[in-house]
């Protein structure tokens, strides 16, 4: 445990991720597939993934200030982070979620 980063402490925490999609669009499906693969790779067993389809629950869009689809929201650990797009760029997703820090232990 050399890294002093606050997210390092998240090692024991369960990551709560929320992916907002709107129906089964190409972008949504791609995003979900990408996300699952990154999580399995880096956060195996330590994450909880919730997929929200706004076509089914449109009232949930306001809560997380969702405008773009797809949007990935990291609820835990705080602070909340948002990544928009189909998550095709692995590096940027990992930086965005701060997964790198966890990896570098």
């Amino acid at each position: 445990m050399e890294t002093p980063l606050p997210t390092a402490a998240a090692e024991d925490e369960t990551w709560e991720l929320r992916l907002y999609v709107a129906g089964q669009t190409v972008k949504s499906v791609t995003a979900l597939a990408n996300l699952k693969s990154y999580c399995e790779q880096h956060l195996k067993g330590r994450y909880k993934l919730e997929v929200i389809d706004l076509l089914v629950h449109p009232q949930l869009a306001a809560g997380d200030q969702i405008l773009a689809i797809p949007t990935l929201v990291r609820k835990v650990p705080v602070p909340i982070r948002k990544i928009i797009g189909d998550l095709s760029n692995q590096e940027r997703v990992l930086v965005g979620l701060d997964i790198r820090a966890v990896e570098c232990k």
Partner: peptide, 14 residues
């Protein structure tokens, strides 16, 4: 953070 393609469907839905 932006990565890959997206649209503003969320805004439309809201």
């Amino acid at each position: 953070e932006e990565t890959g393609e997206y649209d503003l469907e969320g805004l439309f839905i809201r």
